[in-house]
């Protein structure tokens, strides 16, 4: 069990799987440690992906095939809680006592979704029809969008920036994906429920990705999604059981009150608990946003402060799937050159 492998990849989400798969293809021996019973990360729970709204399972299948490689040993239910060692000999310990030894490490611990109960004023966990974007994806996968009492919602509000760009919860950063996710989800709601009315409450529409702006246009043009500029301050439940939201329509300059059947909170991304534990039991540095901080923002976004330990994906900052995969591949190049140089030195 304790024999040395070339690379240990911590985290079996999109970035971890991509990195492990690419390393294995180049002939390196890899252990892929995943804390859950199955690999696939958050992608497993996502229905369709933006901007082209393809089925998330397709990307999942690609990744699953990629890690089906004799050079990869997948260890599920293995939560790595600490890394020690330096220069080509690292020892990682798992919560269940397993020990893994590797010449290089890729940390791909990913992100956790913001726990929306922390924004109590939005009533998540209090009012049954206040759900999160992740809950809505589950509903899409199950085939129907329903209220808690089984009814069909006629009006759905999407609240952007829940747990992002919010000093009150300690997250100053933008999670980047929530705006586009809200647009995508609003469109999908229209496809599932005919005649539904949807409203997106935003502070800024951040549509900075390929074809993002286009689907924003499509949402308005084809589906009539309403976009209201104003952050919602609170959600409550009226006598009739409908949800009531309060916002300011900042462009009209007047307070706005609206009854809704369902409120979807666009939960942001936070440093994962697994990443926090790992950071606590190793000397890996973190930034003010609590994500791992990279050696250089521009030229070494995969390198950590420990030589031989690299980062891939959203453990360093919010990223979409495209970026995660690219970042993981970049990590692979870093690992390959590191191992090659080490080999040369050893000889």
């Amino acid at each position: 069990m304790n024999s040395m492998v070339d690379v240990l990849v911590i985290g079996g989400g999109v970035a971890g799987m991509e990195a492990a798969g690419q390393l294995a293809r180049s002939g390196y021996s890899v252990i892929l440690a995943e804390k859950e019973p199955l690999t696939g990360g958050h992608l497993k729970n996502w229905y369709h992906l933006f901007p082209d709204r393809r089925d998330g399972n397709e990307v999942g299948e690609y990744l699953d095939n990629l890690v089906k490689n004799k050079n990869i040993e997948i260890r599920n239910n293995t939560c790595i809680t600490g890394i020690t060692g330096r220069k080509g000999k690292f020892t990682a310990t798992a919560s269940d006592g397993q020990v893994v030894e590797a010449e290089a490490v890729i940390v791909a611990t990913g992100f956790d979704l913001f726990d929306s109960r922390r924004k109590e004023e939005y009533g998540y966990g209090i009012y049954p029809n206040v759900i999160t974007s992740a809950d809505l994806e589950k509903m899409f996968r199950n085939g129907s969008v329903k209220l808690a009492d089984g009814g069909v919602p006629a009006r759905i509000g999407f609240i952007h920036c829940v747990g992002s760009r919010d000093e009150k919860v300690g997250n100053l950063y933008c999670s980047k994906l929530c705006c586009i996710t809200a647009v995508k989800q609003a469109m999908e709601v229209h496809e599932k429920i005919s005649g539904v009315k949807t409203f997106c409450f935003y502070m800024d529409m951040r549509m900075g990705g390929a074809y993002y702006e286009e689907i924003y246009r499509e949402a308005q043009e084809k589906y009539g999604v309403s976009f209201i500029r104003g952050k919602v301050s609170e959600v409550s439940q009226g006598y009739n059981g409908r949800l009531v939201i309060k916002a300011e329509d900042t462009l009209a300059g007047r307070p706005l009150r609206m009854e809704l059947d369902m409120v979807v909170l666009m939960a942001g991304m936070e440093m994962s608990d697994a990443g926090e534990i790992l950071a606590g039991k190793s000397s890996l540095r973190r930034g003010e946003n609590r994500f791992f901080s990279t050696a250089d923002n521009h030229t070494a976004s995969n390198r950590s402060n420990m030589k031989g330990v690299f980062y891939a994906g959203t453990c360093t900052a919010p990223m979409n799937i495209t970026e995660s995969i690219s970042h993981a591949r970049a990590a692979v190049t870093e690992v390959v050159s590191y191992l090659r140089e080490k080999k040369q030195r050893d000889e």
Binding site: M203, D204, R229, G230, K231, V232, S233, E234, K246, A247, E248, D249, T250, G253, R254, P255, L256
Partner: peptide
């Protein structure tokens, strides 16, 4: 301030009079 309007949305006075802190 980024003029998000949350203050005006939650405002007690704003319910009664033309008052918006954002404005």
């Amino acid at each position: 301030c980024i003029e998000c309007g949350t203050c005006a949305a939650t405002c007690t006075a704003g319910n009664f009079t033309d008052f918006s802190l954002r404005e």
